[in-house]
């Protein structure tokens, strides 16, 4: 590689802000704000899930509700391979195994179902969550006589750094996909699948591949989260809310660029945090729902779309940018 060919000015402009933020996040455990580490771990969980969801669903328009399934596979990978007692693999090994398992499951499921479109695909993916829940619940309670599993405890700092690492990997993978022929293929599928196919895009392969990559990333979050929750069972692993939340966060933040889902995830999860642990905890679902309805009605491009529109208006732009 010839370093003289690199446009360092452009590179620094693109990566300066993310690197500063990453550095600030990396130093978080040293700020002495113990709860902050836990809180930012919570943010990272939802950022990773939401960005992973947008990686596939945002680009193609295929609404996947399988997030909880892959997240749950991650949780059960930790329960089986990183238990509180007995033989336990290192956490990094569990993450790799879980990602591989989820990739495989998603690849198989995707190959079968990604020929479905619209509501049928959404229903099938949600059905996958329910299916895995029922199967594992039945096997554990009725066949194994198992009553939940305990996962080895990790410190908050360990959990945080693992999540930060996964976050970095997720952003790099997303950036890579977005800026390569795969991203272009995905966007063309989202615009017009038939036209994409006629243009020579291997539509099914691209969809299945990216679906599997996003599933692998989702499952890694489950592994790390299990070491925080410690006790897991089928109902906690395959909680349907984990399927809906990333989709709602993405809608809230906007899906036009990389930052929208991340911002949506942070704000959405923090609003949830404030409402659940504040004086309004009896009303948080009501307020939460109202915010969501208002977002869908008045901010169809999400928060980032709104900010961009306002920015463009302030700059006197004649036409607001709605999709990047």
């Amino acid at each position: 590689m010839n370093l003289s060919n690199i446009n360092w000015k452009q590179l620094s402009k693109t990566f300066a802000a993310p690197l500063v933020i990453l550095l600030a996040l990396a130093l978080m455990p040293f700020y002495g704000w113990e709860y902050g580490v836990s809180l930012f771990s919570h943010f990272l969980i939802y950022i990773i899930l939401t960005v992973s969801w947008v990686m596939f669903s945002g680009a193609t328009g295929y609404i996947s509700l399988a997030t909880a399934a892959f997240y749950g596979i991650g949780i059960y990978s930790a329960a089986l391979l990183h238990p509180a007692t007995g033989f336990s693999l290192p956490l990094i090994a569990v993450i790799i195994v879980s990602a591989a398992a989820s990739f495989l499951v998603a690849f198989i499921v995707g190959a079968i179902t990604l020929r479905l479109k619209g509501i049928y695909f959404a229903m099938f993916t949600f059905g996958l969550v329910l299916l895995l829940f029922q199967v594992i619940n039945y096997v554990e309670t009725s066949i194994l006589g198992q009553r939940g599993r305990f996962v080895a405890l990790e410190s908050n700092e360990t959990i945080y750094y693992y999540l930060l690492g996964i976050f970095v990997v997720t952003m790099i993978v997303t950036f890579f996909i977005k800026n390569t022929k795969y991203g272009l293929a995905l966007r063309s599928i989202g615009e017009n699948e038939d036209a994409a196919a006629h243009s020579g895009v291997n539509v099914t392969m691209v969809k299945v591949l990216i679906f599997a990559v996003s599933a692998a990333l989702m499952s890694t979050v489950g592994v790390v989260m299990a070491t925080k929750t410690i006790y897991v069972d089928a109902s906690t692993a395959f909680n349907p809310m984990m399927s809906f939340s990333p989709a709602l966060m993405a809608i809230f933040g906007g899906m036009a660029n990389l930052y929208g889902p991340a911002v949506g995830a942070v704000i959405f999860s923090y609003v949830q945090e404030i409402l659940q642990t504040g004086n309004l905890n009896n009303y948080y679902m009501l307020i939460f729902g109202s915010i969501l309805i208002a977002t869908i009605l008045y901010m169809p491009q999400g928060l980032m779309g709104l900010i961009q529109n306002l920015w463009n208006r302030l700059k006197g732009a004649k036409r607001a940018l709605t999709r990047g």
Binding site: Y35, S38, L39, H42, N156, M225, K228, T229, I230, Y231, T236, N239, M241, E273, Q276, T277, N281, N282, Y284, M285
Partner: peptide
């Protein structure tokens, strides 16, 4: 409030 969500319960206890 944890609304029966284990993750929320863990977060609440930590807070």
């Amino acid at each position: 409030d944890d609304a029966s969500d284990t993750a929320a319960c863990v977060r609440n206890i930590e807070k």
